[in-house]
Write a protein that binds this DNA or RNA. Structure first.
Lengths: 338, 338
DNA sequence: TTGAAAGCGCTAACAT
DNA sequence: ATGTTAGCGCTTTCAA
């Protein structure tokens, strides 16, 4: 019943109409009479015909595929974002072509070139930055590109993030309120704009509340590295931090594990811990981690809107969208003593 | 420097060769002289030319895209698998076109149709099953399909799983060894083959060790539902289970949270808990969960090998691969009393 | 090794 | 509303 390769010509023959009639039947908004459409549909169903998206794309110049570049799939924030993105784009008839990178710059370059070969209608780059040459190439080719959870100094590049500076600031404010005296910071990968902005906001917030950074270590957005960073901050120290802002939740969980299970410290009695992202695990009672929410829902919505708008209108000016997220105070910074 | 749409014709003109020469230069294994290739490459670089994958696919009938259907991206096992899959396929010049579903059967159907329109070279379906009609359509179209972490009764469908029956059995064995008397089970979504096999293995293992299932509830592979299931098993009960096998780790974490923080029970003193998958979080000290490892690495390797082999050779017989994974005993089932 | 020519399956003018 | 025709950018015979 189902043939191997059925083309619109086969359907046209069976339905007794022209090949273009078949094409029109499967083109939303084309002018076909009901009678013709019915005949075509009948023939198509009988033959098991489905239009070839690739051939269509070749002509229209639109593939309805969007390239998605992502590096840190072990950080729950990204699978969550990916799922929402995929769902929303799917609803609009777009699909994600996935490219994973290990975040080395050279790899990103090759990946983008390959992406462009696939004639993707746009690129969403999550958790990676593009060098200027690359960005310019996409711009020149007229392929819209939106950074997700990263910004670039180059303002011609659109981006969607949370307000990382404000988020870092609000943690400092919170630390000041609960009486932290020796605030420390565990940084993410230092090449990342999110890392930079969160730290800058935190430092500024501390300063404005009469505090200064007591210590700092680098966790590189990586679970293991974050553990090392924690040990550095606490082992063989006579004076230790009493508050820790960790650049993202993913690392904060590792940090809490080391503090509790290696160093035998109590959170929040001995040290308070705050993270960033508010991923699902943060609210699990085992961690109950104070965090700045990155509203994946709204960030994804903004990304979808921007990307689709840029596809529609290539002359749209680039957008730098920073979405405010609330501080979610939880037990990791809430002493029971009070 | 970089034009908007550069075709092989432009490059040919600039290089002073025929368009086919350009095509050959970019076709691995085609016969081109070094001199021609150099001229072409120079012209291509100058113009910023990149071959159009879509046009190529239209002719070759190979898109080098593989459709990936996935439902449970909040269960860490899937992002982890997705990342590995993407990396390995990328290394072979393939890329994943993502389709997310919320696991309603009707949605899967539409999705597969759409996938086929994109002329994907194969389909990998993670955590979903296909009805027979759908499977037959793919088979008839010659599109290889591999189920990942699911099996189907229809043996014409290839699949890669862990040995779920053996895994469930090994948990029962372990429970027997540590002296569990009232083993209970929290099931996943009951339509899933993994759920069915894990439970069957568990029950059989219990029976062979002189035990029988004390109680059972359904968690549907969902965090919240699993919490409810736990409450059902423990609230208002005079006799409670002393050992809990939860159909996957993702649910087991929710179960442990309820036991500890809602019901004030100690794990493993009051009740032991075991999961399945051995996702990263299982080894975090906050949970330290006994689990059956699903070796994502080897499962992905098997999947890639199978998929690529089927693309190469359409007549390859279907494979049902079940990969053995060890039981990883951790503190959640290891009493300190001993 | 190279170029000319014929399509891959479809859309989009253009006529009718 | 429908059929005819000309490509989209490329690969692949076929001759040379």
């Amino acid at each position: 019943m189902v043939a191997c390769k059925v083309t619109s010509v086969d359907v046209a023959a069976k339905a007794g109409v022209s090949q273009s009639a078949v094409s029109r039947t499967f083109t939303p908004g084309a002018s076909v009479s009901l009678r013709t459409a019915e005949k075509v549909h009948a023939a198509a169903t009988a033959l098991g015909y489905r239009p070839n998206s690739l051939a269509r794309s070749l002509i229209t110049g639109k593939s309805r595929m969007i390239g998605f570049i992502v590096a840190y799939l072990d950080n729950q924030f990204y699978p969550e974002s990916l799922q929402k993105l995929s769902q929303q784009l799917q609803a609009q008839g777009y699909h994600l072509l996935i490219f994973t990178v290990d975040n080395t710059q050279s790899q990103v370059e090759n990946i983008v070139e390959e992406l462009l070969n696939y004639q993707v209608d746009a690129i969403i780059a999550a958790s990676v930055s593009l060098n200027t040459a690359l960005a310019e190439r996409c711009l020149a080719l007229g392929v819209p590109i939106v950074l997700y959870n990263r910004t670039q100094d180059d303002t011609r590049i659109s981006s969607v993030t949370s307000d990382n500076h404000a988020g870092g600031y609000s943690i400092a404010e919170h630390f000041s309120t609960i009486g932290i005296r020796r605030p420390a910071y565990i940084a993410g990968w230092e090449g990342a704009s999110t890392q930079r902005d969160r730290e800058a906001g935190f430092i500024e917030g501390l300063r404005n509340h009469g505090l200064e950074l007591f210590d700092r270590a680098v966790g590189g957005f990586d679970h293991e590295t974050a553990k090392q960073a924690t040990r550095m901050l606490f082992c063989d120290k006579t004076i230790k931090p009493d508050g820790l802002f960790v650049a993202n939740d993913h690392m904060a969980f590792a940090v809490m594990d080391v503090l509790r299970y290696e160093l035998g410290m109590d959170i929040p009695e001995d040290v308070v811990v705050a993270g960033y992202d508010d991923v699902a695990i943060a609210s699990w009672p085992a961690y109950d981690l104070t965090s700045v929410r990155q509203p994946a829902n709204r960030m994804v919505e903004a990304t979808v809107t921007t990307v689709l708008a840029m596809i529609e209108n290539p002359d749209m000016p680039p957008q730098q969208i920073a979405i405010q997220g609330p501080l979610i105070p939880r037990r990791s910074t809430t002493s029971m003593r009070a």
